[in-house]
């Protein structure tokens, strides 16, 4: 699946997107966060601020307990600040 990062998550992890193949045991957005956090020290540091991270699955807002079944694109970002 495609993983996207925006705002400070993008700058802290050092990339805007990556392709990830998490194991089958990773079934929710929260479990995906845990798995991604272990990929590198930069991922680990960025994902430490869990309370400040929002998630979207296939371009719809989701929660950390939302299931990933069939998801093509998962995005992580801070609370939005547009307008």
């Amino acid at each position: 699946m495609k993983i996207l990062y925006f705002a400070w998550l993008r700058t802290e992890i050092g990339m805007a997107e990556e392709t990830a193949s998490p194991p089958e045991a990773v079934t929710t957005a929260g479990e995906l966060i845990d798995w991604l956090a272990a990929l590198s020290p930069r991922h680990g540091t960025a994902f430490e601020k869990r309370d400040s991270i929002r998630v979207a699955i296939d371009q719809e807002f989701a929660e950390t307990d939302s299931v990933l079944t069939g998801a093509n694109e998962v995005a992580f970002f801070p609370p939005v600040t547009g307008g």
Binding site: F6, A7, F77, V80, T81, G82, G83
Partner: peptide, 14 residues
Amino acid sequence: LMDWLKTKAPFWKQ
């Protein structure tokens, strides 16, 4: 529209 946009549209300011 503005109130909802501020909290629901995925934009970020630096």
